[in-house]
């Protein structure tokens, strides 16, 4: 068993599942989207990104790229959330669609990342 694979696989897949957990639900009903879940998604995504850093292979670079995409999308979602709560009068409901759809984009990137990761694992002969 390769410990490094376990750890990186754990974080990559956890990033996707958490992302999905946040994304799933009515797009304009905020009862379905927990801020804690978004927070957890961001943290796990950041960890996954750092774990992917420094892999010199072609696949490593693409994995890193997907992670960076997910990071940008999720952090934008968090920023939109913060702005809508504190800096605008409209409140959270106005921005719900933007936040959820941003996290949906991040989910796509995470799915791609997991697929690449699985492909690499299946290809490996050890």
């Amino acid at each position: 068993m390769n410990t490094q694979k376990v750890i990186s696989g754990f974080f990559i897949i956890l990033a996707m599942t958490l992302n999905f957990g946040f994304f799933y639900g009515d797009i304009d009903n905020f009862a379905h989207h927990s801020p804690y879940e978004l927070f957890a998604t961001i943290v796990v995504n950041l960890i996954a990104t750092v774990l992917k850093l420094g892999d010199k292979t072609q696949l490593g670079s693409v994995l890193l790229a997907t992670s960076l995409v997910a990071d940008i999308q999720l952090i934008s979602a968090a920023i939109v959330w913060g702005i809508s709560v504190y800096a605008t009068s409209g409140g959270i409901q106005d921005s719900a669609q933007i936040i959820v759809s941003l996290s949906g984009g991040a989910l796509m990137a995470n799915v791609v990342s997991v697929i690449l990761f699985m492909g690499d694992t299946l290809k490996s002969k050890r």
């Binding site: 943290v43 950041l46 960890i47 010199k56």
Partner: peptide
Amino acid sequence: LWIIIRRMRTPFIVIIVTFAITILGLV
């Protein structure tokens, strides 16, 4: 870049994890 990344990987993770734990607790 490679040397920087390799050396900074653990510190980055440490910062992310400690920040995450403390932020979550406060919330």
